Amino acid sequence: TEEYTYTDKEKADRAAKEWANRGYTVTVTQDGPTYRVRVG
């Protein structure tokens, strides 16, 4: 499991979509002003 942190919702959504397109399980959680994209 890897985790990426973004401050921009659009970038987080785009990253999540790209990982999902590659067949990974993706979870996006909002943590205050940041968005965490957990992959795998």
Rank of each mutant, 00 (worst) to 15 (best):
V28N: 02
T5H: 09
D13V: 12
N21Q: 13
G40D: 14
V28K: 02
R14L: 12
Y35W: 15
G32P: 07
E18N: 07
G23Y: 02
T34W: 14
R36Y: 13
Q30G: 05
K11S: 15
N21A: 14
N21M: 13
A12G: 03
K11A: 15
T25D: 09
P33I: 09
G40L: 13
Y4E: 05
Y35R: 01
R36S: 08
E3K: 04
K17R: 13
V39R: 04
G40K: 13
W19A: 04
D31G: 03
P33Q: 12
G32T: 02
G40M: 14
T7L: 12
V37M: 04
R36A: 06
K17E: 13
A20Y: 08
R36D: 02
D13E: 14
T5Q: 08
E2L: 15
T1Q: 11
D31M: 08
E18Q: 09
G23N: 03
Y35E: 00
V26W: 01
K11V: 12
G23F: 03
N21Y: 09
T27H: 09
Y24N: 03
E10A: 12
E3D: 08
T34Y: 15
R14W: 11
K9A: 09
T5C: 09
E18T: 07
V28Q: 05
G32S: 02
K9W: 13
T34D: 07
R38Q: 14
A16K: 04
T25L: 11
K11R: 10
N21F: 08
A16M: 06
Y35S: 01
Y6D: 01
A20K: 11
V28C: 06
V28G: 01
A12K: 01
Y35F: 11
A20I: 13
Y35A: 01
V28M: 07
A16V: 06
N21R: 13
T34S: 08
G23A: 02
K9Q: 07
T1F: 15
V28F: 05
T1G: 12
R14M: 12
R22L: 13
E10H: 10
E10N: 10
V37D: 01
E3N: 06
V39T: 03
A16L: 04
T27Y: 09
A20S: 10
N21G: 10
A20V: 11
G32I: 02
A16P: 00
E18Y: 15
A20T: 11
D8F: 04
T29Q: 08
V26N: 00
G40W: 15
A16E: 04
T27D: 06
Y6Q: 00
V39A: 03
G32L: 03
T1N: 09
V37F: 04
W19E: 01
V39Y: 03
E3L: 08
Y4I: 05
D13C: 12
T29V: 13
K11H: 12
V26Q: 00
V39P: 03
T29A: 07
D8E: 08
E18M: 12
V28W: 03
R36I: 15
A15N: 04
T7R: 09
R14N: 11
Y6P: 00
R14D: 11
D13I: 14
T27A: 07
Y6T: 05
Y4M: 05
E18H: 12
A12L: 03
E10T: 09
E2G: 13
T34P: 13
A16I: 06
A12Y: 02
K17L: 13
G40Y: 15
E3Q: 06
Y35H: 04
T7G: 08
R38F: 13
K11N: 10
T27K: 07
V26Y: 02
Y35P: 00
R22T: 04
T5W: 13
T27F: 07
Y6H: 03
K17G: 07
R14K: 13
V37N: 00
R14Q: 14
Q30R: 10
Y4W: 09
T29H: 10
E2S: 14
K11P: 05
R38Y: 13
D31T: 07
T25M: 10
K11Q: 14
T34M: 13
V39N: 01
T7M: 11
G23V: 00
V26T: 05
Y24M: 05
T5R: 08
T5D: 06
A16R: 04
R38G: 05
A15P: 00
D13A: 09
Y6C: 03
A20W: 07
K9H: 07
K9F: 12
K17N: 10
A20G: 07
T29L: 12
N21S: 14
R38M: 13
R14F: 10
P33K: 11
W19I: 03
Q30L: 09
E2N: 14
A15F: 08
T5P: 04
E18K: 08
V28S: 03
E10G: 09
K17A: 13
Y24T: 02
V28H: 02
A16G: 05
E18L: 10
W19F: 09
W19T: 01
K9P: 10
T7S: 10
G40N: 13
D13L: 15
D13N: 10
T25Y: 12
G40F: 15
V39G: 01
T29W: 14
G23K: 02
T34K: 08
K9Y: 11
D31F: 07
K11G: 10
Y35D: 00
G23I: 00
A20M: 13
W19M: 05
K17S: 10
K11M: 14
T1I: 14
T5K: 07
T27E: 10
T25Q: 11
A16H: 03
D8K: 05
A20L: 13
E3Y: 11
T34V: 15
D13R: 07
